Amino acid sequence: MTGLTRAAAHRARLPYAMVLALLGAALLAAATAGIAAGSVPLAAGDVWGIVLHRIAPALVEPTWPPVRETIVMDVRVPRVLLCGVVGAGLAVCGMALQALVRNPLADPMLLGVSSGAGVGAVAVLVLHVSLFGAFSLPIAAFTGALAALTAVYFLARSGGRMTTVRLVLAGAATAEVLSAVTSYLIVTSGEPHRAESAMRWMLGGFGGTTWDLVPVPAAAVLLGTAALLGVSRPLNLLLAGEEAAASMGLDVHRFRAGSFVLVALVIGATVAVSGSIGFVGLMLPHVARLLVGADHRRALPAVALLGAAFLIAADLAARTVIAPEEVPIGVLTALVGGPFFLWLMRRRAAR
């Protein structure tokens, strides 16, 4: 792209505040539809009336049956909130990974990070591990994610350089090995109900979400996003290359190691409650950059809103496409993300 074309593209973009406002509106619309849809359909006005009544009872007079308030506040709202949190976390982590490894094809699933988290989580599920009580699953998922990300990084890096081909191959190989380990744990568990639960978890989904599942991933995503916003400048420097970043005073290896731990923590916390959901972290960073540019100070808030809205909409589709049955959300994101990945690879090859 020439400088003139870049300038024209920059002028064609909407103002940043307007983009955030539109993404926020899309998120609210997706959340409203996600809460309203279900076996007991609700009007959008009733949804917001119930939510506002629960927040500030004096604002809205209840005109609905108590059972509807229970459905909204105890079943659908926590599920929609968790979808938004996980979507935002995966999208933000995908954008950070693409900057850290300087590769637009980087994604938590493609790099084996989700598979690593999956090994840890499934091991806890089928082996009855409870060393850390209720935090055993998130801690195991975080440990697996960090180990997988570290392994892929060192496998792909040779002679001080990392190419797209090596990164994708290392990530694919690591993901396959870890998926095999996960399958082995499930097959040898000896308990059919736990094996079935682990299999459904591997496909991704938010069925059975309660309020108890929301705080840990929400805190991890909020703190992780805030931390990444705080290091937006180093992330921007990495886009120019390691040598350029080092010449500007950045300790590249130390920064990358700390960022890997942060990304693995967020991915572990989200994957622990949602299962393996792929391609969210691959697609949405590219969409966000088209909307607001590559500067992480602007792109990270945009991609968080975009990721939250996208996954809420995907979960809504998963619940309604073949209702009353529910499609695993990981299947839907793969159907969308797979073609996008192939298009992106062809585009890079053409360049």
Rank of each mutant, 00 (worst) to 15 (best):
W343P: 00
I55Q: 09
R319S: 04
S276T: 14
A91W: 08
A198T: 07
A244G: 00
L344Y: 07
S158L: 13
F260D: 11
N103Y: 13
V271T: 15
P41G: 04
M162P: 09
F310H: 07
A17H: 06
A12G: 03
S232H: 01
P65Q: 11
V331T: 01
W201P: 11
F255V: 13
V77Q: 05
M18H: 06
G258Y: 01
A246P: 00
G258P: 09
C83G: 15
S189K: 12
V92H: 04
A313R: 09
P57R: 15
V327D: 00
L27I: 01
A134C: 06
I312S: 07
V129E: 01
Y184G: 14
A58P: 03
A44V: 02
L203P: 08
L146A: 03
E325W: 15
I139R: 08
F132V: 02
A334W: 11
F260G: 12
P215V: 09
V67M: 14
G307C: 12
F206E: 11
A317W: 07
G133I: 09
A198F: 01
L125T: 00
V331Q: 11
C83R: 08
L20V: 05
T174Y: 04
A349M: 11
V187F: 05
V231N: 03
S189R: 14
A244M: 10
A117L: 06
S115F: 02
M345H: 00
R254W: 04
T143G: 12
F255C: 11
M199I: 07
T70H: 12
V303D: 01
M162I: 12
A58C: 02
E196C: 03
V113W: 01
A269C: 14
A147L: 15
R102M: 02
N103V: 12
L306W: 11
I139V: 15
T174R: 10
G293H: 01
G307I: 15
A299R: 12
V187I: 15
F135S: 06
A121Y: 08
F154Y: 13
W211S: 11
A318H: 10
G230W: 15
Y153D: 12
H128F: 00
R54D: 01
A350H: 15
E325T: 14
A226D: 03
V51W: 06
A334S: 14
H253V: 09
M199P: 01
R297K: 10
V67K: 09
M199L: 15
I50E: 06
T143P: 00
L178G: 02
L59H: 03
L23D: 11
V126K: 09
A294G: 12
V181E: 00
A170E: 05
T209H: 01
L155V: 04
A91Y: 09
A31E: 09
A227S: 05
A172S: 15
P78L: 10
W343E: 02
E242K: 01
L262I: 12
H296Q: 14
L250F: 12
G241N: 14
A151Y: 01
G94Y: 07
T150F: 03
M202D: 00
R54N: 07
V40P: 00
A9I: 07
A172F: 12
R79F: 08
G87Y: 05
V47F: 03
S115H: 13
D295Y: 06
T70Q: 13
A56Y: 13
T164P: 00
V271C: 02
G205R: 05
